[in-house]
Design a protein around this nucleic acid. Structure first.
Ligand SMILES: [Zn+2]
Ligand SMILES: [Zn+2]
Ligand SMILES: [Zn+2]
Ligand SMILES: [Zn+2]
Lengths: 151, 151
DNA sequence: AACAGCAATGATATGATATATCAGCAAGAT
DNA sequence: ATCTTGCTGATATATCATATCATTGCTGTT
């Protein structure tokens, strides 16, 4: 990722936090930047190691969990429940609202592509859920795939 | 669940294992039965406790993990990655092939309903994945919902 | 500037989930 | 009967996540 692009995203992240009243502190920003620069999802402990190595600090995993929770609340990162790893949102700098995220996870190289689910599919899914007597609250789809490179 | 119904399912499970060459041992069968009788998903450790209490044995969690893995391979149980819990398949006694499972998980009472995703939606999803340059391998959808009773 | 209030982080402990590994055993095949 | 393979026991360890209380550092008020 180009530095210019990165700065744009970080700027937008700042805006999002300002708007919500959250504080994008330097640690939170550092973690977010690290996530943005990673091309694979990272576990909380991997984030901790990376952060500590790259900054020479010694933040505890506990703090990283808190920061990841914060970033998740702001929808700046997402947690993949199928792998217990975290990934930066691909749509931070986009202007559209954040739809149901759909993650395509490569089973070989672990790379992840976040796409927004088509409205039509989302509607149909919700309809199916309603037919079963349930009310859809909030979900993300995590699809096990093979990416172009690996296939 | 009626005992007759339970026996039918266990018989079908036996058939499935025979067909695949796996052995539905008494322990495996005991775990499966326990899962079938539970109306909420259970963690591996919860399964361990239940099994040990109901049989007076002292199986280690390690063995339960192995058994759950086996049952999962045979598609007799599924693992919900969003909650790290296991649930018996709802379609064991059905004759149709096992489609992409779609789990509706109630956020209040934890009950789970497993429905088969509509073919049309599955196709559309696969098409979306293909458009993104990925190839869908094998997925299940876990949707966070509120069930009828709880809403 | 002093203070109060609240948000963020530090520090430590513990709990929950999952895998690795090697040894012993049981069932079916030759 | 011996062999092979798959199943289970037993123990250790790795990985993921939360609980709790103390401390620090903003921010807005007096
Ligand atoms: Zn996103
Ligand atoms: Zn790949
Ligand atoms: Zn099923
Ligand atoms: Zn419910």
């Amino acid at each position: 990722m180009k530095e210019q692009q990165l700065n744009k995203i970080l700027g937008k992240a700042q805006d999002i936090c300002n708007h919500s009243g959250g504080r994008l502190t330097s640690k939170r920003k550092g973690i977010l930047e690290l996530m943005l620069l990673s091309n694979v999802p990272l576990s909380a402990y991997e984030v901790t190691d990376k952060y500590n190595k790259s900054t020479g600090s010694s933040m505890a995993a506990m703090s990283v969990y808190r920061i990841l929770d914060f970033l998740e609340t702001e929808q700046l990162v997402h947690k993949l429940s199928s792998t217990n790893k975290y990934v930066a949102c691909s749509h931070i700098a986009c202007s559209h609202t954040h739809e149901i995220p759909q993650f395509l996870i490569c089973g070989k190289c672990q790379s992840v592509k976040e796409i927004a689910i088509a409205k039509r599919i989302a509607d149909e899914l919700e309809q199916e859920v309603a037919n079963a007597g349930y009310k859809l609250v909030n979900s993300q789809l995590e699809l096990q795939c093979i990416c172009e490179k690996c296939s």
